[in-house]
Design a protein around this nucleic acid. Structure first.
Lengths: 336, 336
DNA sequence: TTGTAAGCGTTATCAT
DNA sequence: ATGATAACGCTTACAA
């Protein structure tokens, strides 16, 4: 029996009007202790569950927010999602998690779905340049927050990591250990983090007076296979690097595999530093040195920012620090 | 300007009644070519986005489904979520993804949220024994499907993997390579997959006439740290195992780390077989032999099943096969 | 403090 | 095929 209990049933059982029932249930102070008592009792007995959609329709607040990440299967974004979700839950918001799957078309599909669902706001780790749907959202003044990545020309509050600092730390660490030829495996130029990290790499190389051979740079797409390909390209060069810096965890894993297939050993033959601290990176052989950001905090802060925007509070973008975690992949003695 | 375009605006612009506009927009055949033309044009020009909440309120179908996984940060569940989401999208359903975070209380919180949102159905990878909320859902005849795990005493259609077969394959493989003492790192008994796998292990050990020493079994909680602890316990035994079978990917990673810390080498000193094929398992050193299931297919099939239930079509539970992927972690020569 | 009633955006019923 | 109109479950003026 699909007997949905409505507020009407609760009111009837409590012997009050629906108006009173509604006021009690939504915490309106204009209620007597007596009716509060009886309404709550009735609701409990009937197993009443308010209909969020009806509520939203009338009050034009859905208490639902959309979160669009570029790839849920990337542990980094899974952590962001986790952090954001927990923060939303704490403010009794529901999170609709969508997965763009590194695909601009799917990103737009989901943005449309969010609009259709009339979410109160959206957090997005944007793909490439701003799509039409994204532009439309900004024009419609939909509460919006960027997380991890940004898009040029969009005036949207964001929570990002200090990527430039992260790269600087990594390069300084490798330089201090005597490396002068640091190979860089970058991400897709369409993503803001990839651009920032690449620039920071060039900058740090110059500042430390290291080799700025363009052959030391290879570009991937933030996926495992591209990291392997990039590593292969860098190592095949006439004068190969003695250290590798990978701009993303999955590409680092790919590079690791490629190096092993070539019969060389990370940590001793070749140093490796990766972005993103994934839980199991410390379990690899050898454990990986990483430039880490707190992905969970990133998601949490982004959600708080979004709720501020929704409530009309003033907001400012945030940049979270990165830190270097040194493990064996970069401390074995390089063979040069 | 928060100018939300409603169907009323569209109707006015098209010069028809809202009834006609609604019929056109929702594909009702009782419409003339002329009005179809004009309504669609008006909708396009105005940038009309139907309000899913209002639609759901009136039609009592939300075209939204809930998906509750036990841990989004576990790659296995991320893959399930991905598969389910894609299948939902193909039938123009929206997926609300929630994360129980291996916590029964949060599981209930989200189940409540799903009810409040009036989703059309729910897919769940259940925690422990059936909670009150879960029981309430069954009683209310909410369309429900279990994925990966089941709960005893609940008559709910499910999509699971053939865990018994998977364990049998793994044990047969190790037995064929001469191992007689296979250490087993099991999951929490509160989870159905853990129970099934444990039983299958005992069964296979008996069938192959291997050592059934109770000291060869250790129990973890499907998280990395517990895998390390379990491995430590097994290896500290008077007569340690020559091979390890881990009932979960994260515990396998933990075990890997522990073995390395003890200065022993997986593949040569000790064989290791893990459950779940994670993308980067093949990049580990050595690459891991796994018992694999297609997590994405699991999610996809579960979603199809759910949509069948929602539409009142007859359904039957499905069991997907597992397969053994042999890599170096189990093929190095064991030292016995 | 409480009841009454309008209305949120949409679909469904019933005439026409 | 189309137009009025009621209804979905809820919140919120407005009166009382």
């Amino acid at each position: 029996m699909d007997t949905t209990v409505t507020i009407k049933d609760v009111a009837a059982r409590a012997g009050v009007s629906v108006g009173t029932a509604s006021r009690v249930l939504s915490g309106n102070p204009s209620t007597s202790a007596a009716s509060r008592e009886r309404v709550h009792a009735a609701a409990r007995e009937l197993g009443y569950r308010p209909d969020a959609r009806a509520r939203a329709l009338r009050s034009s607040r859905s208490r639902a927010v959309g979160l669009l990440v570029s790839d849920v299967r990337n542990p980094f974004f899974a952590d962001i999602a986790h952090g954001a979700e927990q923060a939303a839950l704490a403010s009794s918001y529901v999170t609709l998690l969508a997965n763009a799957n590194e695909d601009t078309a799917q990103q737009d599909t989901y943005l449309e779905a969010f609009v259709t669902q009339r979410v109160d706001g959206i957090i997005i780790a944007p793909q490439g340049e701003g799509s039409g749907s994204l532009r439309a959202l900004v024009r419609a003044r939909t509460p919006l927050v960027f997380v991890d990545r940004t898009v040029d020309g969009f005036d949207v509050p964001s929570v990002t990591a200090d990527n430039a600092q992260g790269v600087a730390l990594a390069v300084a660490h490798l330089a201090a250990r005597g490396h002068t030829r640091i190979g860089y495996i970058g991400g897709p130029p369409s993503v803001s983090t990839a651009r920032t990290r690449h620039d920071a790499y060039l900058d740090a190389v110059a500042r430390h007076g290291l080799d700025d051979d363009p052959g030391l740079v290879a570009v991937g797409d933030y996926r495992s296979a591209s990291g392997a390909a990039a590593a292969a390209a860098l190592l095949a060069a006439r004068r190969p690097p003695t250290a590798l810096l990978a701009a993303d965890s999955l590409m680092a894993v790919g590079a690791l595999g490629e190096v092993r297939r070539q019969g060389r050993r990370i940590g001793t033959d070749l140093a490796l530093v990766a972005f993103d601290d994934i839980e199991w990176f410390r379990e690899l052989d050898p454990p990986l040195t990483v430039v880490a950001h707190d992905a969970r905090a990133l998601g949490e802060r982004a959600m708080r920012l979004l709720l501020d925007v929704i409530d009309g509070r003033p907001v400012a973008s945030e940049v979270l620090p990165m830190r270097l975690v040194v493990r064996e992949s970069s401390t074995g003695r390089p063979d040069h």
